[in-house]
Amino acid sequence: MNLFRLAGDVSHLLAIIILLLKIWRTRSCAGISGKSQILFALVFTTRYLDLLTTFISFYNTTMKVIYIGCSYATVWMIYAKFKATYDSNHDTFRMEFLVIPIAALSLLVNHDFAPLEILWTFSIYLESVAILPQLFMVSKTGEAETITSHYLFALGLYRALYLMNWIWRFFAEGFFDLIAIVAGLVQTILYCDFFYLYITKVLKGKKLSLPA
């Protein structure tokens, strides 16, 4: 465990908790894409099936359980508890356009043609694009609440920190995982435009709104 990895995990956890608290405290999920949250729940579920087969560490198990639990709690708040505040008219991204091609890709490009390995690969690929419905929603409405921007920033930062962790691990341990790296790069690149807006606008105290 190096500092980049730890900071990445903390950033990821922070993102998840920011979103949960935002919805819980405002009693509203306005501006949040339920579809991105369903995709993240699917990502965690398919990746962490190894909870049932392999014990890695107390840290690893705890974080996985927290990620899965929070992600299902978020989906539950959007589609049940605070359903009335869910902005479904603006959440129109078609999930099948991501899930089906990614399922096919994970069957074709993986480390090992075994069920758990294919599901792990699927989750890595899906995670890289799972934020698209949310970014699509922000671009459709032309703005995001400041707290939603903080969520997106923490979530983007997490994978950027993981990229540095992988560079570290390459030099420290002498190997790399091409599937994780390529997907992680794609994921981080998707956030770049948002990072720019976040730094130039949100950090200067302005609300994130896109030019018309």
Binding site: D9, M63, F175, D177, A180
Partner: peptide, 10 residues
């Protein structure tokens, strides 16, 4: 194996 090692990540 190498493949398994990176499964320590989240």
């Amino acid at each position: 194996s190498m493949v398994v090692m990176w499964k320590d990540e989240l």
